[in-house]
Design a protein around this nucleic acid. Structure first.
Lengths: 203, 203
DNA sequence: GAGTGAATTCATCATGTGATGAGTTTCTCG
DNA sequence: CGAGAAACTCATCACATGATGAATTCACTC
């Protein structure tokens, strides 16, 4: 009985793997998914490793620490400067609609939702991430937007718009309240547009 | 040297304390503060105990588990049925303003902010709490509100209002973006009122 | 005043975590 | 081909966590 060791067991082997698999990308995708689904604290290096089919120590080899893995997994695919500029140019009477359309379309892009949720979940619990987000909002969004608005309290208005966007993400994806969670972009844009339009100063 | 035991050291003693201190309430307040500040996962029983001046085992004695402590700490001081009814009666042309005023005033009540933050932070990370919130929103809020609205897609509109409220809490208290975080109720109500009014169907 | 039960702490367990360092295998470049 | 670097795993550490059970002290009732 002691000599019964058949081949069926897919043995774990130490050392470098054959074939140039893009392990780094695999790991980043697994991390993104895990952070998105469970939040920063609950997502464990071990679980991420398991999801990527890799030992947890490899994550440290690549990224050094959980913090840095998180940062690497988050890298955002949008140039805020360009996006803001593009949204603000054009007919100001329909800027609210442009914003609504832009945000909802952005969230439909592959990989974006994972990043968004990871960010929101982490910001809710980790002061460090909240600070990062605060600085980003203030410097990249509010400052640029407020400079272009011809209304009283432009910062406050820009931030209220931001708050509606965050709230939408929470209600729709984190809390998942129906029918909001399943509503289509076409259904939501006409309802959100007036809100954004109002904040940005148009009647 | 072995007999040197002076009074300065505030000895920890085992056994029941003298004087009928309301330890349970103290613990609940400490728990609320801790859950609000750090979120469910990061708030440890030990830290809560320390903040309440009590051994962590006592929390288990009183509440059985961390889950149940959390639930006990959260008990909400608002009758949703009554609140919704009160907000919806009266002049529908200014219902948006009533809602804005109500929410911002509620958050100023002592103890409410702690509960709100604890809830939001936990909902963001713990699926169980998210589900609780989802059910609450759907059954207690959306159902009641939608029944009273004379517009298309009343549920969607009620939930968008909810999303703006959640987003406001996130932006203001969790992320803490300025000047939103420090804005007064008087500054915010006129900006929020049209949004709520729009969602609830008034022009 | 004795005795029951609640309030409270202490010591301890099992578990999961992020991190580290050493060892093994493959790739790449001369 | 041979050497060094990169990719990868294993074993392990130190630590924090939630939970449990026994032990001690006080309050309250008969």
């Amino acid at each position: 009985m002691t000599t019964a060791e058949q081949p069926p067991a897919p043995r774990k082997k130490t050392g470098r793997r054959p074939g140039g698999a893009d392990t780094r990308r695999t790991v980043l995708e697994a991390a993104r998914a895990e952070f998105a689904a469970r939040g920063y604290e609950k997502a464990s290096m071990r679980a991420i490793g398991r999801a990527a089919g890799v030992d947890a120590a490899l994550l440290h080899h690549y990224f050094g620490s959980k913090d840095r893995l998180f940062m690497a997994a988050l890298e955002f695919p949008v140039q805020p400067k360009a996006a803001v500029a593009q949204l603000l140019e054009g007919d100001r009477a329909v800027v609210g609609e442009r914003v609504a359309e832009f945000v909802l379309t952005l969230w439909e892009q592959p990989g974006v939702l994972d990043r968004l949720m990871a960010l929101v979940r982490a910001a809710a619990t980790t002061e460090q991430v909240a600070r990062l987000m605060r600085e980003f909002v203030q410097e990249e969004l509010v400052a640029r937007i407020a400079a272009e608005l011809q209304v009283e309290q432009p910062e406050l208005r820009a931030e209220l718009m931001f708050s509606q966007i965050v709230g939408l993400a929470m209600a729709r994806y984190v809390i998942g309240v129906e029918p909001l969670a399943s509503a289509t972009r076409a259904e939501l844009v006409p309802l959100l547009a007036p809100t954004f339009q109002g904040y940005l100063g148009g009647a």
